[in-house]
Computed example of a mutant assay.
Amino acid sequence: MSHELWIHKFAEGEPVAPDMDVIRAVLQPHSVSSRPPIVRDDGSMAIWIRADDGGDAELIASDSGILVDRPAGGQILGIIAELVTQLGAVIIDPRDGMFICRDEERAHLPAEFQQDAVVIEMTGPAVQDATTGPGRH
């Protein structure tokens, strides 16, 4: 993959800040030791993660959501799927604004996005299929 993904959490149609403690707990075991997490003055956090298969991604988390920059396919998407599940969040593919989520989170999306959301089992392979499958860029 050579694009970015966004992770956002919604409650009753409104965006809410993701839980930074959950983000740390899920991502810390995958943090690249040569580039430890950076916590900025504004409370945002940048962390570079790597999966066992060598895939990596940089994530920037803030109160408004999480940017996943250039996520590799494979196991890295399993880590992203776990993060999304633990946060109760959704993935947004900014190339076309597609919302990718579990059924539990679809009900919390703004009403105008609920019908067109792509509902998947939140696993690495399912995220890979939703973001790079047939008809995708």
Rank of each mutant, 00 (worst) to 15 (best):
S2T: 07
E4C: 12
E4R: 15
W6Q: 04
I7Q: 03
K9A: 01
A11T: 00
E12S: 13
P15T: 11
A17D: 02
M20G: 04
V22H: 12
I23W: 01
R24D: 13
R24T: 04
A25I: 11
L27Y: 10
V32L: 02
S33V: 04
P36S: 11
I38Q: 13
S44M: 03
A46C: 05
I47Y: 06
W48G: 02
I49S: 11
D53C: 14
G54P: 03
G54S: 08
E58H: 01
E58Y: 09
L59A: 12
I60Q: 05
S62R: 12
S62K: 06
D63L: 10
D63R: 09
I66M: 07
R70P: 04
G74T: 07
I76M: 06
L77H: 00
G78D: 06
I80S: 02
V84R: 00
G88R: 03
G88M: 07
A89F: 14
D96F: 01
D96L: 05
G97H: 05
M98A: 14
M98F: 02
C101N: 00
E105W: 02
A107V: 00
H108S: 05
L109V: 00
L109S: 06
P110E: 04
P110H: 06
A111Q: 11
E112H: 10
F113K: 13
Q114L: 07
V118M: 06
E121L: 02
M122S: 05
T123D: 05
D129M: 05
A130I: 05
T131I: 15
G135D: 00
H137C: 12
